[in-house]
Amino acid sequence: MFGREYEYVRARRRSVAKGRELLNIDGQRRWRVNENGAAEGVFIPGRCIYAQNDAYLELANPGFGVQSMVTSLALLALLSCLFMVWIWYGLALHPLLFGRAFFLGWNEPYESAMLPLVIGGWTVMLFFVAGSVFFVYMMFVGLGARTAFFCPLRGRVRFNRKTRQVYVLRPGYCGGDKVFAWDRLEAVLKPFPARLEPKVVRYLQAQPLVLYHPPFNPDDAAAEGEDVIFIESATNAYYPEGIAGLWEYIRQYMEEGPSIDVIPPNAPASFKQVPRYLPPAYSTYCGMPSYAQCRLEMEVSFYLPLYMLLAQSTCSWPCFPKAWQSDSGIGEPEERPVQAGAVMTAMVYRVEGKLTKADEVEFMRLWGTAAGLNKAMK
């Protein structure tokens, strides 16, 4: 889902100042791509990297972890609204149209003695109906629950070292698909209004990493070209060191590229090298996940993955346009997960028998065991 993107676009439509105030763009330092970041070392977030290879690093936008909860609350609000409308119809409108009144299991021909029920239906119940409709409107439109349904399932942010471009997939009403020049981006590490910082710190509210694209002309009142990219920080609480470390990881990848095969055991906090091969724990599935995959990545069971699947049934998976050439010859994670470094996707494909024999060998060489590699070689 795209709650943060939706919130920003709505603020930006009101005014340029509102959009900047929402993320405190002008009230904090913004880190350029050629500056050493604020983090002591890099931070590799779990469950938010689609793929990483020598050409591109692709990450998810925030919102996947709360989509099931938002879906359950949205459905509860919608069902409550429909129930109120049904009661109002049975007590107020149905007697006038068909001469009968009903309420739940009660159904009788309308008589003059029932006039108080009709009056109550057109006054008290109509008030509750209006309140329910307004609540549903605020839930779906005001608070962004609409982004959980009938839109791309997740956002995709691809950092391409070869083209030095950043490719973003998101719904049109949340900013639309865009291509940004890497060198113009600036990192915002505290993406919330300054007045809310005590609340964020006190209640440990998890925050994403925000990359700010300034307007092409600083003196342009309309701020043409101004935009932001939200990137999942994969934290359950406010963790500013992790957000800064995530930015440093992305920056190091784009500026230096992978420089070591794997992260060494007991790496110090100041470790700043980017590994070529990420463990599965850092990867997320690239595609429409199954119920079992939802349970694995959400680390919960039963009802929340069910709500996630319900939302997914109305969504589609976003794909990068071929004209963008965003993969730089590597291939898409959905088509060539082993070559693209899409670890979680490759694991799922292997279980489903979708990998070729050559890809099976390469998968075991990079992420498997010696025994598994020998078995694949045979």
Rank of each mutant, 00 (worst) to 15 (best):
A55P: 00
L278Y: 01
P193S: 05
A38Y: 10
V200N: 06
L204I: 05
A55Q: 11
D261W: 13
E226L: 04
A92K: 04
C174E: 05
L153P: 04
L23G: 02
K354L: 14
Y253Q: 11
A234S: 12
G63T: 10
P337V: 10
L79D: 08
E111I: 06
L169A: 04
P264K: 03
P198Y: 14
Y212K: 06
F230A: 07
S313Y: 08
G46H: 13
D183Y: 08
L366C: 14
F127L: 15
Y277I: 14
Q207M: 15
C48W: 04
R295C: 10
Q165A: 08
Q325D: 13
R156W: 11
I25E: 03
Q293C: 07
F43A: 05
P265R: 12
F216L: 09
C81N: 11
T71H: 01
A237E: 11
A237C: 04
E7D: 06
Y212P: 03
V228R: 14
G242M: 03
V66K: 09
D26W: 02
E256R: 09
Q52M: 15
T123Q: 06
W367F: 12
A38C: 07
A38H: 10
R20P: 06
R202F: 13
G105E: 09
W31L: 15
M84T: 14
C319H: 13
G175K: 06
A222P: 03
R164F: 09
L76S: 15
T71K: 01
Y238K: 00
T147V: 01
R30D: 04
F64Q: 08
G121F: 01
A221G: 02
R336Q: 10
D177K: 06
A358P: 06
E21W: 12
Q28T: 01
V338T: 00
Y173C: 05
P208W: 04
E58F: 05
Y167M: 08
F363I: 00
E352L: 10
M69L: 12
E241K: 12
A51K: 01
R336F: 11
